[in-house]
Design a protein around this nucleic acid. Structure first.
Lengths: 339, 339
DNA sequence: TTGAAAGCGGTACCAT
DNA sequence: ATGGTACCGCTTTCAA
């Protein structure tokens, strides 16, 4: 309840001086500064954010647009963002924008227009043209996590093609030739899965091998069902599977076990993510660190807020291979090594 | 950029009238109202939230304090909250308060004091006394999801004892007598797991059976490891397991399968949650609907904001049994039925 | 039914 | 180094 006027009165100075002392801007003698600060803490003074925003034009708040909070990757990125923002004293406003929901429409039509934030972070948004227009129209800096580079926005993303390429190469190096790619290709065709599929295709083509793509929902049960289907036919079975993400890959591992196919001796499976369950399933995978991506995105945004002129930054991260025990040379192959 | 003054000018009225027309409060003739509204939409007018907040004292914003966003239950509750708030035009500010982190301290010391919200929702917070003080000191309505009832705050929670009781009873009714409880009891001793353990204990005691509690981290890998331990000893093995939550229960199912113990014929497993993976593992479970809990919490809070005098509400939800295929009578038992 | 003007709680410019 | 004061953009009495 105590306002800055009260603080000023108690400290025996003017509002102006009190403001300077508290915000730390402008000249204030050491003596008065401490006097003001003491008065403030004695009164339990906390500046009204709306008054500050109104006067300064800054909200000390960052908006985060996210399609799902209940998926591993998104939740991890969000944690990373939150962590960085908290450290810098920024609030975080969450906008849930699940594709195809009325809520998403409202976010773009109503909520963003309020501009209750100094900048935005969009996680795996994949906006359509109209949504993109709205986003740009806001006139606030935007950082994307996952996706394509725009000319005006910064970006933090995994190099998805590269990750899929490395996963595929890993199986090739072990001597596999019958390698299937599990995931994506659905109607919602996420950009991520598209890129990973591309990386797989290119790598297979370069190795002179036939690509073998099985669409699957990008979830653990989805991977399980798709893999169960795939592995059901005893004779036409791959010896290696690249999962578009760890959840799909783990689904495949579980399906294989249920069918009595032992991993890795009869079937190799590699994923992308390093999901929290990966270790438990001894899953070989290409690690990406979503929390770090989130932190990085927040830092890029805050930097942008500090120096508005600065050019946008595009960060392409490379996944690193973590070898566990879900991949091995195919049965009956001398252990091969391709440079 | 366009302010209400601009809108008023274009519509040929005063700021006051424009404000009335836009907010829908006070008398405005139908003719002028439409004129103002047209001017507003023509100019793409959006009211400045900081100005509105400063003038009205309301922020149209709800703060959500959450210890983890990357756990299923919490993420689901958050989705539910977001959904309800969005519908009512409220923003949602997220405060991450992972136990034992410096961030949590900052949330309680600095961020909450800013009062950038009209009310708070705390999900599974389990605040210590000091934190509770701070929470109350804010002077804004609070709704808790999960946990204990305070005299001043509303609450939405599952009846955890009851859920565990029902899970245990289910196994008893099938004829099991050697029933272990998996989960909780760790150092972080969450209230939830404590209550569920209590419900299990009481039910076993009433049935004249020896309780058998195995501590375990409340995660899928945690349940897996604990169950692997438990089931390793062939002779002293339970015929039924109650998991403190589905992730733990699913971990147990996976561990059993790996050990060649077939579920449900040699081992019954029941969980609590109805987690998104439950169906894939045919897990019998006691369903709670976290999204609905979140929506409900948001509605309670908004109701409280509308009528500040109203008494707090305590909602205790009952989980309902979903029978799948992870539970069956124990080997060699005539199918029993207890009324 | 409408308009004028006084705040809401700060910040920042301009003097002193 | 400090104080006076005009805003920031909107809501809300009070008078007309």
């Amino acid at each position: 309840m105590a306002g800055i006027a009260e603080v000023a009165r108690v400290a025996g100075v003017s509002k102006a001086t009190a403001s300077r002392a508290i915000t730390g801007s402008g000249y204030v003698s050491h003596a008065t500064r401490t006097r003001v600060l003491e008065a403030a803490s004695a009164l339990g003074y906390a500046p009204s954010t709306s008054a500050v925003s109104l006067a300064t034009g800054r909200t000390q708040n960052v908006g985060v647009i996210i399609p799902y909070v209940d998926r591993w990757f998104f939740a991890e990125v969000l944690e990373g963002i939150q962590d960085s923002l908290l450290r810098e004293g920024y609030d975080l406003t969450l906008y849930d924008a699940r594709p195809g929901t009325p809520g998403r429409k409202r976010v773009f039509e109503d909520f963003l227009a309020r501009k209750t934030f100094d900048g935005l972070i969009a996680i795996g948004l994949e906006p359509d043209d109209h949504e993109l227009d709205r986003l740009v129209a806001i006139g606030r800096p935007v950082v994307s996590v996952v996706g394509e580079a725009g000319p005006t926005t910064s970006l933090v993303t995994l190099d998805d093609q590269h990750a899929a390429r490395r996963a595929t190469e890993h199986l090739l190096e072990l001597g596999h030739t019958r390698i299937a790619f599990l995931g994506g290709g659905g109607a919602d065709g996420a950009h991520v899965d598209h890129d990973r599929l591309l990386g797989y295709h290119a790598t297979m083509r370069e190795a002179g091998l036939a690509p073998w793509h099985l669409p699957s929902p990008v979830t653990l049960p989805g991977g399980y069902a798709a893999a169960a289907d795939l592995l059901g036919d005893v004779r036409a079975r791959p010896t290696g599977i690249v999962g578009t993400c760890d959840e799909v890959a783990i689904g495949a591992v579980i399906a294989a076990r249920r069918l009595g196919i032992s991993v890795p001796s009869s079937l190799s499976v590699v994923g992308i993510d390093n999901h929290e369950y990966a270790e438990m399933f001894s899953l070989t995978t290409l690690e990406q660190r979503p929390q770090e991506q989130g932190s990085k995105a927040a830092e890029l945004l805050l930097a942008q807020l500090r120096s508005p002129g600065a050019a946008p930054v595009q960060l392409h991260l490379q996944a690193t291979l973590i070898m566990r025990n879900s991949t091995a040379p195919p049965l009956g192959a001398a252990s091969a090594s391709v440079s």
